[in-house]
C-alpha cells in the first residue's frame, strides 16, 4: 500500500527553486535511500515534507497515508506519523529530552485517539526504547541537544523516533559524524523499529550506512530531480564511481 506518494513536487526557498519536479512513491514496509551530492536538495525535500515554513511549494501533490500532506500543519503531519530525524538537531535549553518527549508523545497519542500516558507508564516505555539505541538516562535528563556530541544528537533523534513510533521516518544524514560503533547502534535501532506497516527514507551520501540499513530502493537526487532509481546495487555503483558519471549523464542527456 502506498504510504507516501509525491507527484511532480516543485519547491523554492528565498525565491529560488530547489526541487524541480520530484516523483516518489514509498510503500509500507519499504526502505528507500535518497543519495546525491551536497546541495542537490535532499534536506530541502525532507523539510518540505515536514512542513517547514520558509519552503514554498510551487507545484505538485503529496499524499501521506491517504491525506493531502501539503495541506496539513507541521505538527499535524508529525502527529499523523511523519518523523524527521534532523541533519542538524536543534538545542532547546532548559527542556530535558524526557520532558520534551513526554509532551510530544502525549500530543501524538491524543491525535491518534489514545489515552495520555502517566509518568510511570511513560518511563517504562522510555526504558525499553533506551536499550534500543543504547542511550543513557543521564543524557535524557539534560537539556535537549545542549552540549551533546554529534553522535549523541543523532542517537537522540533515533531514540525520539522510537518513542514516537512514526509511520514514515525520514533520516537526514543521520550517519554523518558517527563512528562505526555509533553507526551500528543507530542502524540497529532503525532496523528494530521496521515493520510491515511503516517505512523509512534514508538520506545519505555515503553507501556505508546502507550496509547496515539495507534499502529496497535507491534514488539519486541531483539538482532538484530524481535522476536515477534502482535497487541497492545502485548505491554500490555510486560508491565506486562517485557522482560524476551521474552529472555527466545529465549533461549529455
Amino acid at each position: 500500500m502506498s504510504l507516501l506518494k509525491i507527484e511532480n513536487l516543485k519547491a523554492s526557498v528565498e525565491g529560488q527553486q530547489i526541487l524541480k519536479g520530484i516523483d516518489l512513491e514509498v510503500n509500507a514496509g519499504e526502505v528507500h535511500a535518497i543519495m546525491g551530492p551536497n546541495g542537490s536538495g535532499k534536506s530541502t525535500l525532507a523539510s518540505v515534507l515536514a512542513g517547514r515554513e520558509e519552503y514554498e511549494v510551487d507545484e505538485g501533490k503529496v499524499l501521506f497515508d491517504g491525506q493531502d500532506l501539503l495541506e496539513m500543519a507541521p505538527e499535524d503531519r508529525a502527529r499523523a506519523g511523519l518523523f524527521l530525524a534532523f541533519q542538524y538537531p536543534v538545542e532547546i535549553p532548559g527542556v530535558s529530552t524526557t520532558n520534551f518527549l513526554k509532551a510530544a508523545v502525549n500530543q501524538v497519542r491524543q491525535y491518534r485517539g489514545l489515552p495520555e500516558l502517566d509518568a510511570v507508564e511513560f518511563l517504562k516505555i522510555m526504558k525499553e526504547k533506551m536499550k534500543l539505541v543504547e542511550i543513557d538516562q543521564s543524557l535524557l535528563r539534560r537539556s535537549l541537544n545542549e552540549g551533546f556530541s554529534g553522535g549523541e544528537k543523532k542517537r537522540n533523534e533515533i531514540f525520539q523516533m522510537a518513542m514516537l513510533e512514526p509511520k514514515l521516518a525520514i533520516l537526514d544524514e543521520t550517519d554523518s559524524g558517527l563512528d562505526i560503533d555509533a553507526l551500528r547502534i543507530v542502524a540497529h535501532g532503525v532496523n528494530a523499529l521496521k515493520s510491515p506497516d511503516n517505512a523509512t527514507i534514508v538520506i545519505t551520501h555515503y553507501q556505508r550506512l546502507l550496509d547496515y540499513i539495507v534499502p529496497d530502493h535507491v534514488h539519486v537526487l541531483y539538482k532538484g530531480k530524481i535522476v536515477k532509481s534502482g535497487d541497492k546495487e545502485l548505491a554500490l555503483e555510486l560508491e565506486e564511481k562517485g557522482y560524476d558519471w551521474i552529472k555527466e549523464e545529465q549533461v549529455s542527456a
Binding site: E53, G94, N99, Q107
Partner: peptide, 22 residues
C-alpha cells in the same frame, strides 16, 4: 526551535510554553 517542536507533534503555543518553562 519552534519547527523542531512542531515536527515532534507540538503546536507552536505548546512549543513556546515548553521553551519558556525551560
Amino acid at each position: 526551535q519552534i519547527f523542531y517542536c512542531n515536527q515532534r507533534g507540538l503546536d507552536t503555543e505548546e512549543a513556546i510554553a515548553l521553551i519558556v518553562n525551560g
